[in-house]
């Protein structure tokens, strides 16, 4: 069987060292470098392995500013056949609902597919919500925490692990699967493939390309949640600061532990 796979990826800041200046309450970020969300590499690798085994096509899809084309190029260097960037200023300020809607519109535009693969979460938003919202938007079944995927009699044979249990399941196609980190070992981007894919075109989709062209469903307008305020985390009063020798420190710590009844 040939399977048509879409992998959702995101460009995230390379550094997580974003801080708030405690004096001014403003965001400070060291450098503006970005990279592909590391959890997405597992989704891409899973897609490439499925393609290798069953044949088919892997399309990388992202939403972001024009410079997010870089993550599609990265997906090409890993082995993706096709890449789509949904980009439009009217997508700016999107929360989970608007993001999943935009992605679902892009996927509707792309046509038929068998499988959508997503990473566990992103390192910048850390919500782990877009995958499930996207599945709902598309009206397809989904699974998360997935540790293995293969095809069996036209369905996806999916194993996921939640709490103390391992679930062996069969899921009808098309479906959406959020893979866990450690489902596989992602390959490294190949120089040869990077060169070979230099001529591949990244398809861009703007609002005007979407089946639903109502701008109020996208970006800030389509986002029910609003960031009211950002602030540095609460600074608790330090009870005690110790700067003694290692031996004295160990002694003090042991008596703290004794007071707590731990030793």
């Amino acid at each position: 069987m040939n399977i048509n796979i879409i992998v959702c990826v995101k460009q995230v800041p390379a550094s997580s060292k974003t801080q708030v200046d405690p004096e001014t309450g403003l965001l400070m970020r060291s450098g503006a470098e970005s990279r592909m969300n590391p959890y997405d590499l597992f989704a891409i690798e899973t897609a490439l392995q499925l393609k290798q085994r069953y044949g088919g096509q892997v399309t990388a899809l992202t939403m972001g500013p024009p410079q997010a084309e870089a993550v599609i190029r990265e997906a090409f260097a890993l082995g993706a056949d096709d890449g789509v960037l949904a980009t439009d200023r009217r997508f700016a300020g999107a929360d989970v609902l608007a993001t999943s809607y935009t992605l679902s519109q892009a996927i509707n535009r792309l046509g038929a597919f068998d499988l959508i693969l997503c990473g566990k979460q992103t390192t910048d938003g850390d919500t782990a919500q877009v995958g499930s919202e996207l599945a709902e938007r598309l009206g397809i079944p989904s699974a998360a925490n997935v540790s293995s995927v293969r095809m069996e009699n036209g369905r996806a044979a999916v194993t996921y692990e939640i709490n103390e249990y391992v679930f062996d399941t069969r899921i009808t196609l098309p479906c959406l699967i959020c893979v866990d980190k450690d489902i596989c070992t992602p390959r490294l981007p190949s120089y040869v493939r990077r060169q070979a894919s230099a001529g591949l075109r990244v398809h861009t989709l703007t609002l005007d390309d979407m089946p639903d062209k109502d701008p109020s469903h996208y970006g800030l307008d389509g986002s029910p949640t609003q960031v009211k305020r950002i602030f540095p985390p609460e600074i608790e009063v330090i009870h005690e600061v110790w700067r003694e020798s290692p031996s004295e420190t160990a002694g003090r710590l042991t008596s703290v532990l004794a007071d707590l009844g731990i030793v």
């Binding site: 850390d126 782990a128 029910p224």
Partner: peptide
């Protein structure tokens, strides 16, 4: 929880409302 993280986004998208994670 692992289940709540799948269920809440499904529901939020279904009834078209906002969801704040974690």
């Amino acid at each position: 929880t692992p289940y709540g993280r799948q269920l809440a986004p499904r529901v939020a998208a279904r009834i078209n409302t906002g969801l704040t994670a974690d």
